[in-house]
């Protein structure tokens, strides 16, 4: 009877202890914490949504190469490390948490006037995706063409005057002069 109580008590203590220490033991995030695919559709107007294969990209880059200082890993960029040298993981690590979808709206631009603000040049969400993705794809010979990652919508074809909206040859009113 006594031994059984002891075993239960020990097991209970171990369980509690494990639960309490778990966050401390795992400071940084693991790729397995992330969803396998991420649908990027916040700006799909002229191009359709992108199904981003997160699981596949984990093999190509370490977390901090894309997520900067938010995943709890040691930051890669020494310039970022000046301030973010041993930072815990953020509650939310998605791109849109920091990179504004509406980068150039008047109110946001006003906040950049703060003389003490360091991040005066943080790209918007679209810029962040493309600078990061295309920049790496250029080095690793990944796809870099527009329609290699996302399909053009009808609105896109209209804007680019292509596909069904392509200019009829020879009838163009605005032959490129000069």
């Amino acid at each position: 009877m006594q031994t059984r109580k002891k075993i239960i008590r020990t097991a209970f203590a171990l369980t509690i202890g494990t639960i309490l220490t778990a966050p401390i033991l795992s400071w940084s995030m693991d790729p397995s914490d992330a969803p396998d695919t991420v649908t990027i559709d916040t700006m799909s107007k002229i191009y359709g949504a992108v199904e981003f294969d997160h699981a596949m990209h984990v093999d190509y880059a370490s977390c901090q190469e894309c997520h900067h200082h938010t995943t709890g890993d040691i930051v890669a960029d020494p310039n970022c490390a000046r301030c973010h040298h041993n930072q815990d993981e953020n509650d939310v690590v998605s791109c849109s948490e920091c990179h504004m979808a509406d980068r150039f709206n008047e109110e946001y631009l006003k906040t950049l006037e703060d003389p003490k603000l360091y991040h005066i040049d943080k790209p918007g969400l679209k810029g962040a995706y493309h600078l990061n993705c295309v920049g790496c794809h250029q080095i690793t010979s990944g796809p870099t063409g527009c329609v290699e990652c996302h399909t053009m919508t009808e609105a896109g074809e209209k804007m680019f005057r292509t596909g069904a909206f392509a200019p009829a040859k020879g009838t163009s009113s605005s032959d490129q002069k000069h």
């Binding site: 804007m159 005057r161 292509t162 392509a166 200019p167 163009s172 605005s174 490129q176």
Partner: peptide
């Protein structure tokens, strides 16, 4: 170029903007 053409209502280009 494509966005400018659409916004300003400029004439149709000789070639598509993705050319």
């Amino acid at each position: 170029e494509a966005a400018c053409n659409e916004e300003q209502g400029l004439p149709e280009p000789a070639k598509p903007f993705n050319d």
